[in-house]
Simulated assay, not measured.
Amino acid sequence: MARDTDVIDTPEPDASGLERQIAGLDALEMAARSQHGVVRRAWASTWPVLAAVAIAVAIWELVVLSGWKPTYVLPGPGDVFPQLWKDLGEGAFWSGLGLTMRRAVIGFALAILVGAVLGAVVSRVRFLRVAFGSLITGLQTMPSIAWFPLAILLFQLSESAILFVIVIGAAPSIANGLIAGVDYTPPILLRAGKILGLRGIALYRHLILPASLPAFVTGLKQGWAFAWRSLMAGELLVIIGHHASLGVRLEYARENIDAPDMIATMIIILVIGIVIDRLFSAADRTLRARRGLEPT
């Protein structure tokens, strides 16, 4: 005799709720992967620098231990790094660093203005390209220190003399970067812009400058290198009163035969140059990633 069995109805799973849960898990997994990817990229870009620093310090110590020069001329890391730490704790050091960085920012900003205007005009006017193209490249290859006798004659021992050499040293590289970017702008984009009614400044603002931005950033990076070298040369040659900038500290340390302080200041100058260079490199990578030229 068969018995009736009770049928228990089980509710069907909610498809939309299940999809939301799966999507949430996928989002968590992607976030974790993204976080790990950022950490890996940061470490991948950091450890070679740390390794290079360790190798450089080791070679430096070996040269000192070899007795090639007396320690009062070439001190080792054990003498320089304590002096560096001492300098970092002094208010006079930070005021000198602030003075140097203020000169760098003002000079580089003026160089960007002059270089961008010069590059924009020369890149679009054929006559000016033929007349001044080689001159701009010649100015770029000319050593910045060669301009200081003229700068001192024109502006005496003043801030203007330093800024003049910074601008004339960095602006040609910035101009050439923009010129190269304009040269590699696809002609089809220019034709499309003209069809859309872009003319004059609007054409530069909305088409040419965005298209040439990668090359322009490269020009800015190179221009900064010239500006930084010009500034350091200027602070060594143009000593204004008792303004203890980094270059002045370097010169005073040399005159007083204070090799540890001199090398400590050189390390600071080197670190600042490396940090700014890496900032430009990060900006370049971000720009390339946004344009699909390298993995994000």
Rank of each mutant, 00 (worst) to 15 (best):
M1C: 04
D9I: 09
R20D: 01
R20Q: 02
A27I: 06
E29I: 06
V38M: 05
V38R: 08
R40G: 09
A44E: 09
S45P: 07
T46A: 13
T46S: 14
T46L: 15
W47D: 01
P48C: 03
P48A: 00
V49Q: 10
L50P: 04
V53E: 00
A54P: 10
A58F: 15
A58N: 04
E61L: 04
S66F: 12
W68G: 13
W68P: 01
K69Y: 14
P70E: 15
T71E: 04
Y72A: 02
Y72S: 08
V73F: 12
V73C: 03
D79S: 15
L84G: 09
W85E: 03
K86E: 13
D87F: 02
L88Y: 14
L88N: 10
S95C: 00
R102T: 14
R103V: 03
F108N: 08
L110T: 10
V114W: 14
L118E: 02
V125G: 04
L128A: 12
V130W: 02
T137N: 13
L139H: 06
S144P: 02
W147I: 03
L150S: 12
I152M: 08
L154M: 15
L157I: 12
F164S: 04
V165Q: 04
I168Q: 06
I168E: 00
A171Y: 14
A175V: 07
N176I: 05
G177D: 04
I179G: 01
G181Y: 10
D183T: 13
T185Y: 07
L190I: 14
R191I: 03
R191E: 12
R191F: 08
A192Q: 13
G197T: 04
L198W: 05
L198G: 06
R199N: 09
R199H: 11
R205I: 00
H206D: 15
H206E: 13
A211T: 06
T218C: 01
K221W: 03
G223T: 11
G223M: 01
F226H: 15
A227M: 09
E235R: 00
H243K: 07
L246S: 12
V248G: 08
A253Y: 14
N256M: 00
D261E: 13
M262F: 08
I267G: 11
I268Q: 04
V271R: 01
G273M: 00
G273S: 05
V275E: 04
F280R: 08
F280C: 10
A282F: 05
D284W: 11
D284S: 14
G292T: 05
L293H: 11
E294H: 06
P295R: 15
T296Y: 09
